[in-house]
Design a protein around this nucleic acid. Sequence first.
RNA 1: GGCGCAUUCGUCUAGUGGACUAGGAUACCUGGUUCUCAUCCAGGAGAUCGCGGGUUCGAAUCCCGCAUGCGCUACCA
Length: 486
Amino acid sequence: MTTAKHVRVRFAPSPTGHLHIGGARTALFNYLFARNEGGSFILRIEDTDRERNTVEAVHHIIDGMKWLGMDWDEGPEVGGDHGPYTQLERLDIYHQYAQTLLDKGSAYYCYCTPEELDEKRKLAMKRHLPPKYDRRCRSLSDGECKTFEGEGKRKVIRFATPDRGETSFTDLIKGRVGFKNGLLDDFVIMKSDGIPTYNFAAVVDDHLMNITHVIRGDDHISNTPRQILMFKALGLDDIPEFAHLPMILGSDGSRLSKRHGATSVIEYKSLGYLPEALDNYLALLGWAPGTEREIFSLEELVKEFSLGRVGSSAAIFNPEKLEWMNGEYIRATDLDVLTKEILDVDSGEAPFIKTAEFEYLKSVVALEQERLKTLTEFPEMTKFFFEEDVEYDQAAWDKIMTQEHVPGLLNGLKDKLGKLTALKAEDVEKMMRDLAAEMGIKTSLVFHPLRVAVSGRMVGPSLFHMVEVLGKDRVLKRITDTLQLF
RNA sequence: GGCGCAUUCGUCUAGUGGACUAGGAUACCUGGUUCUCAUCCAGGAGAUCGCGGGUUCGAAUCCCGCAUGCGCUACCA
């Protein structure tokens, strides 16, 4: 029976904090590739660094992925046939494989202490020599081992790297990449506390989980020969394909960090970004559709994605373009949905959003939708729709309200608006245009003062619709209040 | 230091030997629509394709060297 190889990819974060922008991009590309190929997407937790990992971080990562709209076929919360999907729960498996390597002579115990190694490394650096492990323990006799054991020395297991030959592979993104084996260290695969290191655990798991494609950041490219060598030493022939994604950098070209602003996915959520916009933006960081189109939903990305169209040079994360894209998504979002999203944003400083009546809130959202770039801007932009008193912007007052005709105008407006039964936008507009004609002045001289009187500002949505939404009572009260300031 | 990867407008990118006087997007500027802002529309400026050699009738595209940036070089992942 010959069926096309079923694609299986994994995202394998180590839970040290929130889901990082770079990690999210890696997860996304794995997800898009898997879904595009009709394959499986697996989430695996690489928690072999006891110092840095936390359980909360696992939840943070899961939350981040869910928020971005990704789901996985195997992994935490969903299980699967190749579990467990958390490395610390797979310790027995690693020991078994380490033993195999030991038996084959492809690995050996090393009794050197971290202090000794550290000193040697420093010395080598000082002499400008490559700081490689000197393989002192590689040729230990059984007797010597016994002696060390007797002394109760702690030991690690090291991989016996071949010192001849070359290990090369064809990266799906970078092309042919080769490394001389002799340059590789006899790296540790099992730490003295019995926990495997990354390079070893990843190989064992990728094999056992039938991973067909390893898609990860290109900071892992030099780990690849070590992993390939291990597959070979274990006698495994299911070496996956590799695809190394270009890095995402900060504005100054260095690794993306706190200095460059928000770096975790969840921060973007609280900053008022829509997950679809982040997905879309992240997809375009490294991948290009080959057409001039830029806006793609997750489903569309799945359909269009291919590793062949992933570029190979690092990309600088550009918050401005993300913001523009977020605005595009906000404008395209259904009004009900958008209103709910705004309600979901943490508006701690603006409780009036939460207590507002839904239909009213919705009508305000409708007026501001095309102006919003992020959800979090909403409260500040629309305060005057919800609060009793208006705060007058100083510049607006100075520019508009100090004109001679204003008090008289407002009085007249108050009168005319009072006579309308309900403030329908088109009625208000007609009345005001007529008034301007009557007074023989430009319409803007009539419109702007009312805008400042009811909103306190010079900029905002269509005046007439604003007045309609605010309602007659509020509008009249605000004109009255404003009049008292003269 | 060694090894690896990368290098097209400020930024994201298209480009796989001739259609490139290098296309799009964003940001910026100008004009139009409009009650302001925003949206939308039209236009502008912005890249000697990192540098130097080569291959070729012809190179952003292929090869070599250099420079620069980033990554790895851990009992981190």
